[in-house]
Design a protein around this nucleic acid. Structure first.
Lengths: 347, 347
DNA sequence: AGAAACCTTGGAACTGGTTCCACACCCTAA
DNA sequence: TTAGGGTGTGGAACCAGTTCCAAGGTTTCT
């Protein structure tokens, strides 16, 4: 491989500005005082020579890479939901001059921890200071990360099968209160026969959403009804196929809470095929506030998740962890927001 | 900030194994010969002390960061389209032990090059070897990147306002042939009255798509009809609002080629509101093959763009550039693929 | 006036790998 | 026996920054 041509070094700048190397370093880091006059001369020389300090060299001494890795696990592609979390991480990080590395990983929940092949970034040492874990997170991956002593924060909503004594930093959003508020809103609009279209309730996050719905129904002495299926092909598909089961119930439901926007989309599409109208024939609310929600007609009332804020909070928490390695672990749960659009009818 | 505890260094390993530092380095890089006996003793010592070499230190000497930056410019959020390009970059890069940094940038096309504030990664030097530019790329950004002598490859479809003599490495997909094939397909199915719903034709990529459509019409001696609007609110919105203009034409069009899937979505939604059916009342094809295409009912026939492949090719080309800095610039245009689904009727 | 405190500055030593030169050693050929 | 070539190894010099100590100058205090 051809070697990159030598760039201007701090010593060349020092010589050109007729000062010592230490002074250049002080100007660059604006740490200790340098006289206005000298500083100006140095800055001028830096500009003139087009000098840009070498990041690697500094990092050795600082013992900090000022870089974190966003690791997306077990996702076939960078889904809009996670893309926006990454966006949040990056925008917060860049304000603090921290860099964000993107890496992906595929692994099975049954692979023993020491046999998980981590991406190249995590095999080297000193490249990154910490890790933000997103995607589906199983205990074996967590154990592997702990074994290489890499500080990390996990996006908690897709954590699966973790025992309660497993302690680590987490950031997530509030599944339970999201559906609770959505359900209360429907009840406030006069609905009494409300079903929950869950998809596959073995996913812990859908389980939590169901529990929120159930709580809303219980506190109003209403009967909770769960529409589920074992491992459906896709959420949209599940929505399409379950509309029949919903409408044939006696008494007929006036509203449905969907486990997520994709299910809501499937329900809506199927209704449309049968020339039925939302919200005239049935009211509908979703969860996640994905792009699809706005594409529906009328646009879907749904529970908004602040994806960028999740990313930002992950980054913030990771930096705290790096500053205070012995701090106790925390689990931050961010609130969701119910967005009223056009799919709920006032009875 | 608390300092990370000192890790084992190569000198400590050398002392413990009673060899010189050079020997440790040789064992690690398995470059020149070391006797079996010595190698084994060194490896054993490395294991015993849990030594992992510091990546930063090596990079200074190698003058290679083994890291590239994916820079997304002027995008409010990490759009699924670009997310998948990033995914392609990462998956190809990680196979070659290269790392991918994600950064975002907002700038105006009218800011003078030297006043563009590059993200932190590009202000330092030696952190990354090269750059992959995505998002909307104007000449001033390009000039700025060139001024810091950073090798780069641009995703070319969203390059705007570049003069022809401006030379740089580019990877893109084939707008022109995409709509040309789509148009030929429609004509093959018996359609003669076909309109092109472009949105805003001042975008060069929509212009190229229009030209492809026009070519298809011309070669069959058919009249090209352009439906456009000056800077519409959004593509979906444009689609919704222009259906009236399309259907009122005499003779009435039997098919529409949309400038992209969002426009097609808008057209479809509006048709649905007026209780019209695709493809019975009008046939429809899109461009991009975004997720929305599959959500439509029937699913949209559209021109597929291989997003991951674009990312992969960008990375591949960037690595070639790094190996051969004086190589002549190239512009690779990847083929698109027409995906037949349910929105075209055989007349 | 002299001492003390403070600011500014130069530059040697340092970080943790890699590279390369010198040298010891062994084997083979003249 | 000596020259020549090859292999294996130690360690100094190196990369490009940061850090810290000492020194010189200036200001303030007694």
């Amino acid at each position: 491989m051809e070697v990159v041509p030598r760039k201007t070094t701090i010593r060349e700048v020092a010589q050109a500005a007729a000062v010592g190397v230490g002074t250049i370093s002080r100007v660059l880091n604006s740490s200790s005082q340098v006289s206005r006059e000298t500083r100006e001369r140095v800055l001028e020389t830096i500009r003139r020579l087009g000098f840009r300090p070498n990041a690697q060299a500094r990092r050795i001494l600082k013992r900090r890479a000022e870089m974190v890795c966003f690791l997306l696990s077990n996702r076939d592609f960078l889904h809009p939901f996670h893309a926006r979390i990454l966006q949040g991480v990056e925008s917060y990080a860049s304000g603090l001059k921290q860099h964000v590395l993107f890496a992906a990983l595929h692994y099975s929940p049954r692979t023993p921890p020491d046999r998980i092949d981590l991406p190249p970034v995590l095999q080297e040492h000193g490249l990154i200071d910490g890790l933000i874990l997103a995607g589906t997170i199983y205990p074996n991956l967590l154990r592997k990360i702990e074994s290489i002593h890499m500080p990390f924060v996990a996006f908690s909503n897709n954590v699966v099968g973790m025992s309660d004594e497993q302690q680590f930093d987490q950031v997530g959003f509030d599944d339970f209160n999201g559906t609770l508020h959505a359900t209360r809103y429907l009840i406030g609009k006069g609905h009494r026969q409300i079903v929950f279209a869950a998809g596959d309730i073995s996913y812990p996050w859908l389980r939590r959403r169901f529990e929120g719905y159930r709580q809303g129904m219980r506190e109003n002495k209403l009967k909770a009804v769960l529409i589920a299926a074992r491992s459906p092909q896709s959420f949209v598909d599940f929505g399409q196929k379950s509309i029949g089961r919903i409408l044939s119930r006696q008494p007929r439901p006036t509203a449905a809470v969907a486990g997520n926007d994709e299910i809501a989309y499937g329900l809506w599409r199927s209704l449309q095929r049968h020339a039925m109208k939302v919200p005239d024939d049935i009211s509908l609310v979703g969860f996640d506030d994905r792009e699809e929600a706005l594409l529906m007609d009328p646009p879907l009332s749904t529970v908004r998740v602040h994806k960028e804020e999740i990313g930002e909070t992950c980054m913030k928490m990771l930096l705290e962890r790096l500053h205070h390695p012995r701090m106790t672990f925390s689990h931050r749960i961010l609130p969701t927001e119910f967005v009223i659009r056009g799919t709920v009818r006032h009875l």
